[in-house]
Amino acid sequence: MIRLEGLSKIFNTVNGQVAAVENVSFELAAGEICVLLGPSGCGKTTTMKMINRLIQPTSGKVYINGRDTDEVDPIELRRTIGYVIQQIGLFPNKTVADNICVVPDLLGWDRRKSRARAAELLEMVALDPGTFMKRYPRELSGGQQQRVGVVRALAADPPVMLMDEPFGAIDPVNRGVIQDEFLRMQKQLRKTVIFVSHDLDEALKMADKVAIFRAGRLEQIARPSQLLANPATPFVETFLGSDRILKRLRLVRVAEAMISNVDVVFPGDPVAKAGQLLKASKHPAVMMLGPDGRVSGIVSQEQTAAGNGTCGDYATPSRVSIPVLADLRNAVALMFANGMSIIPCVDDDGKLRGALTYLSIVQSLEMAEVST
């Protein structure tokens, strides 16, 4: 969908020529998000702005859907590419609806069609059209303005979006909410997105691919899991940080790491049965199910030492569980917070689907590293 070939930009300054971007090449498939990441002055924003020709390349080519962008009028090109910036740039004298519809109006869309599109997009970012369509930017919070800025870029249904640190000025709580809403929209809309960020955690959360820049050069482009498992250069390894293994926990779902064939007992079963199951499996505990199929307790190896009585007599009530779609970072946090060496993994209905242990987490990370 987007292909960069040998893209370079040299600026002439009073001190001579400065290479802001040097020979950058990569390809992004339709529907993918690529986050450009790196220290200040590394060339990531210049690279992005050459895609819509806000900055004219010195050399190299940009292709969008197979078409050389040099052959397209720059104004026409920009009207087919959504653009979101950190400063948002809403027109203060226009209503929210008119701000969203700037490009559709320039393209000559029917007014009813464009306003219907604006209402549809506002609903997608949890802003009620009946409340917000007629408001002005000054009547919105910073987070609400940022959401309007995002949907404005989507109004003409462009296949490509460029986003320059779009959530950088938002407080951490609202930033997480807007990120989640954008990812939810992306699942439905499948835009091809180039996203500039300075935040590694944001990049790992948002990206299908991460491109790390240094001094105008592309050091590595890879999927987040591949990047964290196999940094290509010493600079990339340093940039990712010494805790990059912990960062990988965010990228792995509980369902990928859990033990799916976990043994279970019921309250009326002899506690000796739990002991036999644990001896065979070497797991730290066995799950006890209630009649509804949900975990009602956990029987540990120590609790089976009594030998007599039922599982219901000795089980520790199950305090917490983790959804199978959660990430391992959340799971490990729960396990540490509650002093649990094993945690039940459940579906949306709360039914047991597996169990997670520290060993299963380590093994899943090792397998992921081998596969990448």
Rank of each mutant, 00 (worst) to 15 (best):
P159F: 07
I194K: 04
M288G: 00
A207Q: 02
F266D: 03
R135S: 00
V346P: 11
V151M: 11
S260K: 15
I322M: 14
S197Q: 03
R184W: 00
A331Y: 03
G275M: 02
I343V: 15
P224S: 07
C101N: 14
H198R: 08
T45W: 04
S197T: 15
A355R: 06
P92G: 03
A116P: 00
P323E: 02
E366Q: 12
G216L: 14
S25L: 09
I88W: 13
V286D: 01
T46Q: 08
L127G: 06
Q303T: 03
D349C: 06
M50K: 10
L289F: 04
K9L: 12
K279I: 00
R117H: 11
L122R: 02
L277C: 03
A280C: 00
M287D: 08
V271M: 02
A331W: 09
D347P: 06
R250Q: 13
D164H: 05
N330C: 08
Y136K: 12
Q17W: 00
D70Q: 12
L278W: 05
W109I: 06
I178E: 05
V160M: 03
Q186F: 13
C101Y: 01
R217F: 01
Q86G: 02
V21Y: 10
D171R: 03
T131D: 11
M206L: 15
G82R: 02
P104G: 10
R184F: 00
I100S: 10
V265G: 01
D180W: 05
L359A: 12
V148R: 11
N230D: 13
E123G: 06
K209C: 01
I178P: 00
M124Q: 13
E139H: 11
T95W: 08
R223H: 06
K44R: 02
F336P: 00
K205F: 03
I2G: 04
I64T: 06
V148W: 07
I10W: 04
R248A: 14
L218I: 05
S260H: 13
Q276G: 05
H283I: 02
R111V: 08
G41R: 10
S260C: 07
L127K: 11
G130L: 08
D98K: 13
P104S: 05
I81F: 05
I342V: 13
P39N: 08
A211E: 11
R214K: 15
A30M: 09
P137A: 09
V18M: 12
V236C: 12
